[in-house]
């Protein structure tokens, strides 16, 4: 991992991208890294575009806003078009397979995977899409071991849903080649 990794998560309200950003920040804190998470609030977070940011760092993180993201998760076309333009040159974009990669975007930096379909069909609950995404992001970026990530998830889900969330994490990870993102980030 880079010394400072700026991540952005975007989708429509209700897809749970904010929770995904929180879980990854929590896992970072559990593993002893520094993490800062923030999100867009208000009317835009209720059904419109929803955006959250997490910064992971080996050093103390002061300035808490993301400027040039190293990673973007986009679950809607609108959020992909909007935030895809603000990426770092070597930034990685993860999208749902249902989205169309815009012409101006470097396809080599895009991972298109069936996040929504996997949640719906494989896990069996559409609302687990954000946890599927967390599993995929963790594998793609090579961030945390399974135990740390599972604890990160556990701290933010209702008691009694551990099993289905574990299933979603595993299904998400399985969407990424075992060796992860070879180019590194």
């Amino acid at each position: 991992m880079k010394d400072r990794l700026e991540m952005r998560f975007a989708g429509s309200g209700g897809q749970g991208v904010i929770l995904a950003s929180v879980i990854l920040a929590e896992a970072a804190v559990i593993s002893g890294l520094n993490a800062v998470q923030s999100q867009a609030y208000g009317p835009e977070a209720r059904g419109g575009v929803s955006k959250a940011e997490t910064i992971l760092g080996r050093e103390k993180i002061w300035y808490s806003k993301v400027s040039t993201p190293d990673f973007l998760l986009a679950l809607t076309q609108a959020s992909l078009e909007k935030y895809g333009k603000e990426m770092a040159a070597d930034g990685l974009v993860m999208i749902d397979e249902s989205l169309t990669v815009p012409d101006w975007m470097d396809r080599g930096r895009v991972i298109a995977i069936p996040i929504l379909r996997t949640a719906r069909e494989e896990v069996g609950k559409a609302f687990t899409a954000n946890i599927v995404a967390v599993g995929a992001i963790n594998r793609a970026l090579g961030l945390f071991d399974d135990g740390t990530l599972t604890e990160g998830v556990r701290r933010h889900i209702p008691a009694g849903t551990e099993e289905i969330n574990a299933k979603a994490l595993a299904a998400g990870a399985a969407l990424i080649r075992p060796e992860g993102n070879k180019e590194g980030i």
Partner: peptide, 9 residues
């Protein structure tokens, strides 16, 4: 808002 809405370890 910066500090109020920020999460940190």
């Amino acid at each position: 808002e910066i500090v109020g809405h920020m999460r940190e370890g």
